[in-house]
Design a protein around this nucleic acid. Sequence first.
DNA 1: GAACCTTGTCATCCC
DNA 2: TGGGGATGACAAGGT
Length: 772
Amino acid sequence: MLSLKKYLTEGLLQFTILLSLIGVRVDVDTYLTSQLPPLREIILGPSSAYTQTQFHNLRNTLDGYGIHPKSIDLDNYFTARRLLSQVRALDRFQVPTTEVNAWLVHRDPEGSVSGTQPSSGLTLESSSGLQDVTGPDNGVRESETEQGFSEDLEDLGAVAPPVSGDLTKEDIDLIDILWRQDIDLGAGREVFDYSQRQKEQDVDKELQDGGEQDPWAGEGAEALARNLLVDGETGESFPAQVPGGEDQTALSLEECLRLLEATCPFGENAEFPADISSITEAVPSESEPPVLQNNLLSPLLTGTESPFDLEQQWQDLMSIMEMQAMEVNTSASEILYNAPPGDPLSTNYSLAPNTPINQNVSLHQASLGGCSQDFSLFSPEVESLPVAGSSTLLPLVPSNSTSLNSTFGSTNLAGFFFPPQLNGTANDTAGPELPDPLGGLLDEAMLDEISLMDLAIEEGFNPVQASQLEEEFDSDSGLSLDSSHSPSSLSSSDGSSSSSSSSSSSSSSASSSASSSFSEEGAVGYSSDSETLDLEEAEGAVGYQPEYSKFCRMSYQDPSQLSCLPYLEHVGHNHTYNMAPSALDSADLPPPSALKKGSKEKQADFLDKQMSRDEHRARAMKIPFTNDKIINLPVEEFNELLSKYQLSEAQLSLIRDIRRRGKNKMAAQNCRKRKLDTILNLERDVEDLQRDKARLLREKVEFLRSLRQMKQKVQSLYQEVFGRLRDENGRPYSPSQYALQYAGDGSVLLIPRTMADQQARRQERKPKDRRK
DNA sequence: GAACCTTGTCATCCC
DNA sequence: TGGGGATGACAAGGT
């Protein structure tokens, strides 16, 4: 199949060249586009990758003009749709509406980039040059452009001169052989029958005459798309497209030029004739069999470059398209964009008279939607590029462009977007690869974090858990952050709410401790509860009830409540060491529930047994007031109380010790509580921070994903645009020699790679200098 | 019986 | 200067 394809291709090409040489205008595209789609597929393969998108014609196709499903316009249609979808999908990244404008570098007749010849530099800003198809009257302008297109072509010498020559016998034989080959392949002979074609063209011309009156008539547009115009001077026919369809012609011309180029033995850097007519003259001889090369088809390749694996490229492209098709929420984007009927990707192929540029790709209004200024793509530093003074930069659409810069910087987009295998073409001496501006965002550490997060999420952890996992993994604090699950910390946490006020008012603490009575403990005071006091006084107790509170885990409430807290069961410490040894000996601790059913006497006995050492001492020293009073009375009242009684020094000393120890005890409890609260608060803060961290990580992952997707889309767009760029000879630009670069004003420049490298290096130095 | 926890106590600092 | 709060350290007792 490959050889057959090659054979047929070569035959058709030879045929085309011969016909063009003898002055018969042959539009291969006519066959390829409308009449024999299979042929095009045979030659070019069923790929839209080689379909030169009619950017300026997208308006028509996207406006809903009928497209035959088998027409290769459908291919263009899908390509255009895809491009449009890509552009629209960029709104997801909040990129403000921005235009992608392609600037062509003028290539002077010598075939070298005239970067130092301002005079030859072409700025297509002129009205006669590149049309800025931005307004709603694009259609009119395109129509006008189309009207002048054939003239422009001829001004450029792009159309083969009307050489009136007869076919030699060899040519006729060759043509006949080719016909037979095509017939064998299923192509009707009438396809190549020039007279029949003329008849068809006549019919089409009639249709076209009617259509030109109203070129935008719905049905006429489709018919017009296949119409052929007859050159007024030469009588040759060439496809007349609907408004905006001139690129079809231009591409047809390009194709012919490429074929011609392929037949000519000049290399990449060979000097090109100034115009096409001279090219045709430069063809060595009509009788010389043209040498065809196999690498005609790649839009990204020049003749001298090593051929890429086209199949691989196509698969890559398709995979990107599939991914984008999955990712782009078209409905959302349509709502967001509310796209007008005008095609945002209109391309203007209009040519300026006397302009050596014969192709002009303007991704006009290629809205990289939502490119916010803080997230715009390209650095305004590109504005410093000598656009006006340098002829190497040809603005295709310099106006009406918002900034699409900043994040990407004035970067060599070829280095940015093209994979190494694309950049590193043969004989590529362009130097080191330019840095990826997004590379810093996707550095290894970030990706590690992302992978960690992704792994954790995949493993079923939520981000908080993942963060905790990560935290615990490298935690060296030794502080268990999981203490909140322990009963002690729970109780502590409950008590922490009142801890701050506990020392100021014991009664308020007690009143607020209905649900957390346990944690109120004695830290706020020694049994200041009136009930306890009454009980003590009724029973003649001399002191406070620290042991009671201790037994109840310092609760003022009914100790039986403890039984309702199962997680406190194991905290049943019985610190009875404050009791006198005698009391301890007989101390048979009943369960807390025993207090409930116990009589008052039993309770009194029990409380007596629970007395602290100080209480026992106070009782032994016959202190006439309770320890609670000793401890909790204000200094003035305490002093009054002391003054009321005649106390010995030993008694006074004991009373002061009791007061000191009691206060210190409460202080110690409050201190410990505060410690615990501090730890709990710290733990809560850590959890909050972990939550925040997880959220930020999630957002970061999202942003990075978005960035990645955006990068891929911009890369594919770059390849699309770059692959469609042609020099004045219709040859694709070599990625190793040229690169697209976004200027500060949002336009796109095609500049030599050396210059792009220099700028990239300059760009690299800037951050380094800043760091210094 | 060791390890750990809880609580009370002391010493000290500070207000 | 004394009272008292805060806190580290220690000991005792419990688990």
